[in-house]
Computed example of a mutant assay.
Amino acid sequence: MRDDELLTVVEVMARLRLSRTTVYELIRTRRLASIRVGRARRIPVQSVRDFIAGELREAA
């Protein structure tokens, strides 16, 4: 997976095994960076990686 690849909310839901509501809450609280392309919301792969790394740091 390339660092500059953009994921849909559904793809992020599947990768993180989270609900749609939770993913949008992470976006709303800026814990998960995203961009809008027209009406579509896209999340960079690096943003998902950064989120996971941050969660792992907090858990340690």
Score class of each variant (00 low, 15 high):
residue 7 L to P: 05
residue 32 L to G: 00
residue 42 R to Y: 05
residue 27 I to R: 00
residue 59 A to R: 15
residue 50 D to F: 04
residue 38 G to W: 03
residue 40 A to R: 13
residue 31 R to N: 14
residue 44 P to T: 09
residue 35 I to W: 05
residue 39 R to N: 09
residue 8 T to Q: 07
residue 32 L to F: 00
residue 6 L to V: 08
residue 56 L to F: 04
residue 48 V to E: 01
residue 54 G to V: 05
residue 37 V to G: 09
residue 31 R to M: 12
residue 28 R to T: 13
residue 32 L to A: 00
residue 29 T to S: 10
residue 48 V to L: 02
residue 18 L to G: 03
residue 53 A to K: 15
residue 57 R to G: 05
residue 54 G to Q: 10
residue 37 V to P: 02
residue 18 L to T: 05
residue 60 A to W: 06
residue 3 D to G: 11
residue 34 S to W: 01
residue 18 L to A: 10
residue 48 V to T: 04
residue 9 V to K: 02
residue 22 T to E: 05
residue 60 A to I: 11
residue 46 Q to I: 11
residue 10 V to T: 04
residue 24 Y to L: 11
residue 34 S to P: 10
residue 4 D to N: 14
residue 10 V to I: 02
residue 33 A to G: 13
residue 60 A to C: 12
residue 20 R to F: 15
residue 41 R to D: 02
residue 4 D to E: 06
residue 59 A to Y: 04
residue 53 A to F: 14
residue 11 E to M: 09
residue 27 I to L: 03
residue 13 M to H: 08
residue 53 A to E: 14
residue 9 V to F: 05
residue 9 V to P: 03
residue 28 R to K: 12
residue 26 L to S: 01
residue 15 R to H: 09
residue 20 R to H: 15
residue 52 I to E: 09
residue 26 L to F: 03
residue 39 R to T: 06
residue 23 V to A: 00
residue 22 T to M: 14
residue 24 Y to N: 05
residue 31 R to T: 05
residue 42 R to C: 07
residue 26 L to C: 02
residue 3 D to F: 13
residue 1 M to C: 09
residue 31 R to L: 10
residue 46 Q to G: 07
residue 18 L to E: 10
residue 27 I to E: 03
residue 26 L to A: 01
residue 14 A to C: 08
residue 60 A to E: 14
residue 6 L to M: 13
residue 30 R to N: 13
residue 12 V to C: 06
residue 22 T to V: 12
residue 36 R to G: 05
residue 30 R to H: 11
residue 15 R to D: 04
residue 19 S to H: 12
residue 24 Y to C: 02
residue 35 I to M: 12
residue 14 A to S: 15
residue 4 D to Y: 12
residue 44 P to C: 03
residue 60 A to F: 11
residue 31 R to S: 08
residue 19 S to K: 13
residue 40 A to S: 07
residue 22 T to C: 04
residue 23 V to F: 00
residue 52 I to P: 04
residue 38 G to M: 05
residue 49 R to Y: 11
residue 9 V to D: 01
residue 12 V to S: 04
residue 47 S to L: 13
residue 17 R to Q: 15
residue 19 S to V: 07
residue 51 F to C: 07
residue 47 S to T: 11
residue 28 R to Y: 12
residue 41 R to F: 03
residue 23 V to N: 01
residue 55 E to M: 14
residue 25 E to N: 15
residue 3 D to E: 15
residue 16 L to W: 02
residue 58 E to W: 07
residue 46 Q to K: 11
residue 8 T to A: 06
residue 55 E to T: 06
residue 41 R to M: 06
residue 39 R to P: 08
